[in-house]
Amino acid sequence: MSANTALAEKYRNNFLKEIEEQVEMGDWVKMCMQCGVCSGSCPTNFQSAWEHPPQELFMMIRAGKRDEVLTSTSMWNCTSCYNCIVRCPRKLPITHIMHGIAEYAHRIGLAPKMQATRFFSGLFWKNATKTGRVNELKLSMGLYFKNGFGSGVKEGMKMKDVAIGLVLAKRLNPLELFGGHKCKDQKGIQAMLKKAYEIERSRKAAKMAG
């Protein structure tokens, strides 16, 4: 049984409860009063990129639309601009809920596989935690090559002017590919993160059991 089916089974008919227990800040979803201020404030909504703005996602959660929510690309479009947070009359930590739903969808394998931001997000974290610091070049290369080598060259070429400009301005170092910035105590960082994951996993499991 996959993680997804197990969870779906456990929370049968109660997607709101599932979100409350499994998603960071998820217990806030029920407090939304559907005023729509967040949707009206969300930049990605203006660019008509979104299937569902936050208000709608929260309503869908309450209406039990599990698959539609967790497979949506919507929360991946959040730019972390925090516009919604400061405006929500109910003080919902919307940005964090958006990230939380995304993380959950990713965790149980329902998130759209090739959603670019999801990919980038994962990449970023791996990039950052591997050495303790972000390697911007590897990060970009990784993103452009996500669809394989051929399209990677194409994506990379599109950004070529940008990259050359940055190199000239000494703000992107081609040598980063071979080493680059890193922390000294990488071992400590890895150990620390391993522990953190362990703790987090056991807490979530406890919630699921209880």
């Binding site: 960071e24 972390s80 940005t95 990230h99 939380g100 995304a102 993380e103 990713h106 965790r107 998130a111 931001t117 999801r118 980038f120 997000s121 994962g122 970023f124 974290w125 791996k126 950052a128 935690t129 303790g132 610091r133 972000v134 922390c183 000294k184 105590d185 960082i189 620390m192 993160l193 953190a196 994951y197 703790i199 987090e200």
Partner: peptide, 26 residues
């Protein structure tokens, strides 16, 4: 000395809650 990345908000998919905070806490 030896500071590390803050995890920036975009890392959310992989990070989860605790690891993110642990990075900053370090």
């Amino acid at each position: 000395p030896d500071w590390n990345c803050c995890g920036a908000s975009i890392g959310y998919a992989e990070a989860g809650e605790l690891p993110r905070h642990v990075m900053n806490a370090r």
